[in-house]
Amino acid sequence: MGGKVVTISSGKGGVGKTTATANLGISLASLGKKVVVIDADIGLRNLDVIMGLENRIVYDLVDIVEGRSKLRQAMIKHKKFDDLFLIPAAQTRDKMAVSPDDMVKLTNELREDFDYVLIDSPAGIERGFRNALEPADEVLIVTNPEVSAVRDADRIIGLIEAADKGPGKLIINRLKADMVKKGEMLSSEDVFDILGLTIIGIIPEDELVLSASNSGVPVTLNMQSKAGMAFNNVARRVIGEDVPFMNLDENLGIFQRLVGLLNGR
């Protein structure tokens, strides 16, 4: 069967799907894998700018599906990694321009030459989500430790299981360890208790993610970034390595750690 198709989904918008897809793509490529990332968010193209490839686009996903472009012609090679490619979304079409079957055909072709095909799913539970889900061998569900995001994740998880694509794995993004400590944020254990899915990544809130999206250089390329390291760990787990979860408390100030000690934590 060749390569593996991994879909990154969430239900709710703005939780970090595109950020996760870009960073996983880069991490997998840096681990020596051949990778294609597909932006399935037709009409709201984003993965190109997050990866810094926006000015190289000639053709897009709909051009491939409608036969105006050969698959290879539409694939944009990453500046740093020769084995990392992007298939951008069409910006001026709607989601109905692509069907779940189109996506299956496309990814089957890609599987032959690549180790991983990552699909950045649009928010919602409509056609765009179906397109991203249909070809998936594995689904990663991104959520934030927040009531509304977890609720929407639960909905998506139900749909994924109903489509026989489950169980997915969870990426908990934007966790603030200091707030969890104070009891003011859902912990990753809480999210696990509620959703009952294996957690494949816990990504801290990190300002560098914004700088990274400003510059179009995903944060996993920044050695200083905790979020970048955490995404890199996710990639290693995706390829089957057993990587321990990092301690997200390390960046707490000495004062906070003292308070924690005094409170017996």
């Binding site: 977890v150 609720r151 009891g183 859902l186």
Partner: peptide
Amino acid sequence: GSGATAKDRLRFVL
């Protein structure tokens, strides 16, 4: 904390 409240509310709503 509001984290525990969030968990209770999620359980209920789900």
